[in-house]
């Protein structure tokens, strides 16, 4: 654990506040009066996912922690947990609730390498690669003459049954790229 001034915080930094690990999503630095400054922070609780917007003096000392991260692959699901394994074949159980935002991208025999973050040896988050490829299990046929790609329609992913908007030309059985940060369709492979 190290000390960092609030005015030096950047997005991605993790600090301990009131005994909770919070990741900085955004730090807005503003000079107030008499050469003092304040920082408005947008922070996410790594344990609960709750987002908050506190304000602190720029010269306030914050306890920064460097979280351990490991590259893992998905092994199997055993509700209510999902099991991941690292390159040394250590297994980690992660609560489905913890990864509710990305659970929809899980699939059997998934080859994507994910980044698992640990806080006090406990896995607290899973980050997928920015772009992943998934198969479309179902989508309505394209309307004749409407293949520009500007019109979107709903598609259902194989395994997860997750629905998202794709271009009109995407068909059943197509592989598509998905941006995991925005959750949006990128292109057909």
């Amino acid at each position: 654990m190290s000390v960092k001034l609030a005015g030096d915080l950047q997005s991605g930094n993790v600090v301990i506040v009131e005994n909770l690990p919070l990741v900085v999503l955004k730090a807005q630095y503003n000079k107030s009066g008499r050469n003092a400054a304040v920082v408005k922070l947008r922070m996410k609780n790594l344990l609960t996912g709750r987002v908050s917007e506190p304000i602190v003096k720029a010269d306030e000392k914050m306890e920064q922690i460097i979280l351990e991260k490991k590259e893992c692959t998905f092994s199997y699901s055993a509700p209510p947990v999902h099991v991941f394994v690292d390159s040394d074949y250590n297994q980690y159980e992660i609560d489905a609730e913890t990864m509710s935002d990305v659970e929809k991208y899980l699939m059997p025999d998934m080859k994507d390498v994910v980044e698992v973050t640990f806080y006090e040896s406990k896995p607290i988050s899973v980050v997928f690669p920015k772009v992943i490829v998934r198969e479309v299990e179902y989508t309505e046929p394209v309307t004749r003459g409407d293949t520009s790609g500007k019109i979107t329609k709903t598609a259902v992913l194989k395994h997860s049954k997750h629905e998202l908007q794709v271009s009109a030309f995407v068909e059943i059985g197509d592989s598509i790229e998905i941006d995991t940060e925005s959750g949006e369709f990128r292109r057909r492979c």
Partner: peptide
Amino acid sequence: LEYLSAEEWVDGCHGLASPGSETS
């Protein structure tokens, strides 16, 4: 009670809480 400023960022910062480091 902060300093007076007409800058736009003030509107978004007014009334926000600053968490205590050791206490609630």
